[in-house]
């Protein structure tokens, strides 16, 4: 290592990742209730068994706007992606990260600067970027009420930075994007394993749900979608900056 400070940071990072990896391993092979990877134990622990034995003729199981529900998100797809199958979504986030890393490995760095394009595009770019960020922000804030969610919201927010690169403005630096991506990804896994200390099983939705259709409902789902949207937006924006020069040399910190 270069000096003592970088050695200490490396050891701390490896220790933190080892703790997270241990928790993810034990959620994959535990025998409690919940969703697991190794689904080979008793029939009563499987998801299909619980859903086939639900009573739909009961008076309490009506799903209407403004009432209570088991998972009070109005968008059913959202409650499957971010609450019942959160383990699969976290693996998808890992796959996206590896794809972008492989992309940065293959493209050779050229010495072409981001230069100014035509005058029309240069002066209209702030308005277009504001509009695209507005649409993306609306989509992940209302992820549990209207269609959308975190993943297309991140893709739309990254096109705002693409318009800036095509017109000649570099609005964020490359290192800021990497920091945002790292912090958001770590927070996703940390919040998911926090449920073990509060309620007893991993990847559980530990906040109280409200009524169906409110803005502040569905527990942990809006927080998770915010983090996913920022992570996806930072990753896809990092791809565009790989084509131009200006990325600093990566020190071995």
């Amino acid at each position: 290592m270069k000096n003592d400070k970088s050695l200490l940071l490396n050891i701390l990072a490896i220790a933190f990742l080892a703790v997270l990896a241990y928790f993810i391993y034990s959620v994959a092979t535990s025998n409690d209730i919940g969703i697991k990877v190794t689904d080979n134990n008793v029939v009563e622990n499987r998801v299909a068994y619980r859903y086939l034995n639900k009573n739909v003729l009961d008076e309490n199981s009506k799903y209407e706007w403004g009432g209570k529900a088991e998972d009070s998100a109005a968008n059913v797809v959202t409650s499957i992606v971010a609450d019942y199958r959160l383990f699969d979504t976290s693996l998808e986030v890992i796959v996206l990260f590896i794809t972008v890393m492989g992309f940065g490995l293959v493209i050779p760095k050229e010495n072409i600067k981001i230069k100014e394009s035509t005058e029309l595009l240069y002066h209209w770019t702030p308005l277009l970027m504001t509009y695209m960020l507005l649409v993306g922000g609306y989509m992940f804030i209302n992820g549990h009420i209207s269609p959308g969610g975190g993943f297309p919201a991140g893709a739309i927010m990254s096109t705002a930075i693409l318009v800036g690169v095509l017109a000649g403005k570099q609005t964020v630096s490359h290192t800021t994007l990497k920091k945002i991506e790292a912090i958001a990804g770590t927070l996703i896994f940390s919040i998911a394993t926090l449920g073990f200390f509060l309620k007893g099983s991993f990847f559980i939705n530990f906040l109280e749900g409200g009524n169906v259709g409110d803005l502040f409902s569905a527990g942990l789902i809006p927080i998770l979608y915010t983090l996913v949207a920022f992570k996806v937006a930072a990753e896809l924006s990092g791809i565009y900056f790989e084509f131009y020069e200006g990325g600093e040399e990566h020190d071995n910190v």
Partner: peptide
């Protein structure tokens, strides 16, 4: 509609 929004933004844009 969720899949349609995702496919339109990623497939035809990015």
């Amino acid at each position: 509609p969720d899949v349609a929004i995702t496919e339109a933004s990623i497939g035809a844009g990015i």
